[in-house]
Design a protein around this nucleic acid. Structure first.
Lengths: 239, 239
DNA sequence: TAGTGGTCTAGACCACCCT
DNA sequence: GGGTGGTCTAGACCACTAA
């Protein structure tokens, strides 16, 4: 039941990146250097680096090295233009509803398993701003399974996912999402400070975690007129 | 080296999957079997399989083998695949404008390079149907660079990307996209058979190809009320 | 128990980048 | 020329699955 060695290298590097020890643009130690430092074979180190590439933490350049990459503020596979691209943009998040224990809604866009239904839901609602302009309304549900004192706790760095990770050791393993263009309702239009009716980009997301039967459910309402949703994909096999 | 050996294995398997030789749920030959068949080391075969996992073609199960996976995406817009490869049978596509040579529009959502500007554009516009319901309007531009007789040619299997691939050996290497919710204009509402105004999901896409300075530009208008855009992503590193 | 994928080692040669 | 990542080989042992 030991943890694979390459995972130790991977987690170690990941933590150094997340904690800011290595900054965007920095060169990681070379593969040979890492192999020597961890007393491992280069192939083992390469497996660790390969996963960091897949997860978007680094890019590799032949003849140069592994470079820490900017990770975008992601909404699943998507990210909001302006959240991380424009330097100096002030992004912040405010609660409309602080986390609270509640029942699941009668109408819910995803099927819940028995364990989730029994546990009840933690619910909260946030509004995200870019430069003091409200851009995205987010409603989040998660089953109240082994999340002690969640509702009393402050979020780590204002981030729900970082809180899950650091406090409860929950990692996001995948996401399903669905996108629609809808007409705003009155309340959403008011919160996003847009005329009513306005076209709104509406997403439902289901995040899978490293815990079986534990998912994170989010609904997003985005005002895309000023900050469209962006996404970029490069096939790693081709140059 | 002409082409890395693992890429030959990868492409070979990918083609067998895409052509239907291996169907969803089928077991691929084991790693040892593949290594023997291609006269390669198992590690080399594993690299090929690993990329197929990353691209979502297969899943691996310890003790069992590599299993062909269903490739997702209800309308496949959030990844690098063309429409007709992704959706099932009840889909068809009709031209609103057949391919023709033209100037680039005065207002264009992406910056063009000199080579593209000089060459002029090939332009066409298509409407895509699911079950005889118009779902998506697509406008495509590509620079007229080394694409002999493009406008006279019929598309391969109704697919623009397959035509590029089979006839001109052009491969899609990546995509940038931007999403917005907008209000329909009169013409688009009419084509999509929705009331006017309706909220429409609007995407601009720029596909990079294996040819430098050659890009494919598409604008999409989607009626998401009946067929929302879906997308799924699983982190291959976990379990 | 036989076969599978998961992990790991210790080598090797190459193309690419920088100086 | 010296260092980097990219590719590849030939082994080894392990945990898991299925018959």
């Amino acid at each position: 039941m030991e943890q694979p060695l390459y995972l130790r290298v991977k987690d170690s590097l990941k933590n150094l990146i997340l904690s800011g020890e290595y900054r965007v643009g920095d060169l990681l130690p070379s593969e040979n250097e890492l192999a020597a430092r961890f007393h491992l074979n280069r192939a083992t180190v390469r497996q660790a680096l390969s996963e960091l590439v897949n997860e978007g933490y680094i890019v590799k350049h032949k003849g140069k090295g592994s470079i820490v990459r900017e990770r975008r503020n992601s909404l699943g596979l998507l990210s909001i233009r302006g959240f991380s691209e424009v330097v100096g943009n002030s992004v912040n998040t405010r609660f409309i509803r602080k986390p609270l224990l509640t029942d699941w809604p009668d109408v819910f866009p995803f099927a819940l398993c028995e364990a989730e239904k029994e546990a009840g839901a933690i619910y909260f609602k946030r509004l995200r701003y870019v430069d003091e302009t409200p851009v995205m309304l987010e409603e989040t549900y998660i089953a109240n399974i082994h999340l002690p004192r969640f509702c009393q706790r402050e979020f780590v760095k204002d981030s729900f996912f970082q809180t899950l990770n650091k406090v409860y050791h929950i990692e996001i393993k995948g996401v399903e999402q669905e996108l629609r263009a809808i007409s705003s309702d009155l309340q959403t239009a008011a919160l996003l400070q847009v005329p009513h009716p306005s076209p709104i980009l509406f997403l439902t997301l289901r995040f899978a975690t490293n815990r079986r039967n534990l998912f994170v459910y989010s609904s997003l309402w985005c005002n895309t007129s000023d900050y469209p949703i962006g996404n970029q994909y490069m096939n790693p096999s081709g140059s």
